[in-house]
Design a protein around this nucleic acid. Structure first.
Length: 297
DNA sequence: CATGTTTCCTGACAGC
DNA sequence: TGCTGTCAGGAAACAT
């Protein structure tokens, strides 16, 4: 179940393997719900593009594509001269891994895994493949006008604030007046994006806060602890290559190791590593939620 | 608008 | 062995 640390690991790994290469061919499966952008439109937007950078925004993987071929009908005219009337456009390929999505870089000789939904042929001769058995993943094209303001990078921004960048006052303001459980608020991607079930539970444990506490009623000091614990949990998980739970692997097929650091997630009934109390599991918003009833108030 | 609930999908696993 | 049933979960759609 890829969350921010796993997505960051995958994005970095894919960047190392395909950054600087050109997309020479595109094949997409016939599973329309996988494509937020219609498949034909997506294929046309990708084919011939160079991949400048692959990076993470929230739980999304963003492929920044070059603009070398924005005017294909005009290819006979001199290169690099854009008509003044045409606004330059940023084109990005957005990949969300959902639950079981994987991005693999393979030789074409390697048989296609089951549930392959996209194959991009690359100028290196290798293929970038999107494989997703459960099909909660999504692919989309994001187009946006470029900004002349170099300070504000144009393009896909994601639905919420970046947990690793947000300052304490803004973090505290996110939850002000909210009448839902803090766990649910942490999972709401339009507030903070990137935190999922594992890191929400682990962050709340470190901060000593019960998952069901109403977000808007947390004290300033509690939100300060939570701000710190969200960032420390995510940073430590990134350093360990993410958590391998069920079938998550990074772009190399290597498993992460942060699951060895989990204090509450999937430890139902086992003793709390701090106080020995049995870890409790409850359902909250339809999601399994794990906490220590002694350490978390 | 804010919040809560349902739905999508398949593989893994338990139990018989 | 092989079947059936249950569970997992991100985020969009839908309901309240």
């Amino acid at each position: 179940m890829p969350e921010l640390p796993e997505v960051e690991t995958v994005a970095n790994g894919v960047h190392e393997r395909v950054g600087g290469q050109r997309i020479v061919s595109v094949w997409l499966s016939s599973k329309p719900q996988t494509f937020k952008t219609p498949a034909a439109e997506m294929a046309a937007a990708l084919e011939g593009r160079g991949i400048e950078r692959v990076r993470r925004v929230g739980k999304h993987i963003v492929f920044d594509l070059d603009r070398a071929q924005d005017s294909p009908a005009d290819s006979s005219s001199s290169a690099n001269i854009q008509p003044v009337s045409v606004q330059p456009v940023n084109v990005q390929w957005i990949v969300h891994l959902g639950m079981t999505g994987r991005l693999l870089v393979s030789s074409p000789d390697v048989p296609l895994p089951a549930h392959t939904h996209a194959v991009l042929g690359l100028s290196s001769g290798r293929e970038l493949r999107f494989v997703d058995p459960r099909r909660f993943g999504r692919l989309a094209i994001h187009s946006s006008a470029t900004s002349d303001d170099a300070a504000s990078p144009a393009g896909f921004q994601g639905p919420g604030r970046e947990p690793l960048a947000i300052a304490l006052p803004e973090f505290q303001a996110l939850f002000r007046g909210r009448r839902l459980a803090i766990k649910s608020a942490l999972l709401n991607q339009s507030l903070l994006h990137g935190v999922g079930n594992i890191y929400a539970d682990e962050s709340l444990f470190r901060a000593g806060i019960r998952p069901k506490r109403m977000a808007g009623r947390l004290r300033r000091a509690e939100l300060e602890r939570l701000h710190g614990s969200v960032q420390s949990v995510l940073r430590e998980a990134i350093a360990l290559g993410g958590s391998s739970v069920s079938d998550y692997v990074d772009a190399d097929g290597v498993r992460g190791f942060f699951q060895l650091e989990h204090k509450v997630y999937m430890r139902t009934g086992q003793p709390c590593l701090v106080c020995g109390t049995a870890i409790r599991k409850i359902a909250l918003g339809g999601r399994s939620t794990h906490y220590c009833p002694h350490c978390q108030r």
